[in-house]
Simulated scan of single mutants.
Amino acid sequence: MGLSPEQDTELRRRLRARDLTVSARARLECVRLSARGWTVPEIAPVVEKHEVTVRKALHRFLEGGFEALADAPRGGRPPRWKREDLDVLEAMLDAAAAEGTTWTLPAPAEWLRRERGVDVDSSWLSVLLHRDGFRWKRTRDSLRHKADPALQAAAWERLEGLRLRAEAGEEDLYYLDESGFSPTLPTGFTWARTGIRAVVKREDTKSRRVNVLGALRSRISTERDC
């Protein structure tokens, strides 16, 4: 079975669709492989379908084109959300990851109810987000937003002066640092797209906190004392 250039382009476009169902994708793959010269017995194990199912998919395409490969309408209550609702939610999660805002799973479902007026079960929303490349992943903390470039430049200049004096034997140079430990940890995970790490701007908390100081003597000072 051959495809025209227009049909081949349309086939590729449909295979890239994010909301494509498993069954519809399998039918499109049958058409793609058949157009490349594969036989039905060769296609069946690749798409994990019976040969009869593969032949039905090819016949549906020959008789009705791409539209005939879509899933048949299902009975029961129609979905209570639309693709555009999920697109808006995902755009919001992308913006949240860029801003360092964390979202646990119940929160996006509640956001859809409040902002879009649609009801999606949290477990099903997790499946939908996974389909679109989102994962429940660890965040990364950052204190860079607290840095003052002017103060940093002045500190580096002063430190360089101290280092030079230590090399000249005029000063004993020690490096002092402080680290804080809090028994209450912030949310360390959020929903974010694959390849995106949400950077959370860490602020001081009013909870119980333990600070530890450490000092390191410069090697230059040690060598001067020997």
Rank of each mutant, 00 (worst) to 15 (best):
residue 114 R to W: 11
residue 39 T to C: 05
residue 206 K to Y: 08
residue 37 G to E: 11
residue 52 V to T: 15
residue 140 R to K: 13
residue 5 P to W: 07
residue 148 D to K: 12
residue 186 P to D: 13
residue 73 P to G: 04
residue 84 E to G: 09
residue 226 C to I: 03
residue 184 T to F: 05
residue 50 H to M: 13
residue 12 R to N: 08
residue 196 I to G: 02
residue 107 A to V: 04
residue 199 V to L: 09
residue 34 S to Y: 13
residue 189 F to A: 12
residue 69 L to K: 02
residue 206 K to T: 07
residue 53 T to N: 05
residue 53 T to Q: 07
residue 190 T to R: 10
residue 27 R to D: 02
residue 222 T to E: 09
residue 62 L to H: 10
residue 3 L to D: 12
residue 171 E to N: 03
residue 149 P to V: 09
residue 199 V to A: 09
residue 92 M to W: 01
residue 162 L to W: 10
residue 157 E to G: 12
residue 16 R to L: 06
residue 130 H to D: 10
residue 155 A to L: 11
residue 156 W to K: 13
residue 17 A to P: 00
residue 215 A to Y: 01
residue 104 T to K: 14
residue 168 A to R: 14
residue 49 K to C: 02
residue 13 R to C: 12
residue 38 W to C: 04
residue 118 V to M: 07
residue 225 D to Y: 13
residue 47 V to F: 11
residue 181 F to L: 10
residue 188 G to K: 10
residue 22 V to L: 12
residue 154 A to S: 13
residue 186 P to N: 07
residue 176 L to E: 14
residue 72 A to G: 09
residue 112 L to K: 00
residue 173 L to C: 04
residue 160 E to N: 09
residue 96 A to L: 04
residue 112 L to M: 02
residue 184 T to R: 13
residue 177 D to Q: 01
residue 63 E to G: 03
residue 200 V to F: 00
residue 103 W to H: 15
residue 72 A to L: 11
residue 201 K to L: 11
residue 77 R to N: 07
residue 41 P to K: 11
residue 112 L to V: 00
residue 10 E to N: 09
residue 71 D to K: 05
residue 20 L to P: 02
residue 81 W to E: 14
residue 188 G to T: 14
residue 182 S to M: 06
residue 54 V to N: 04
residue 2 G to I: 03
residue 159 L to W: 13
residue 29 E to D: 15
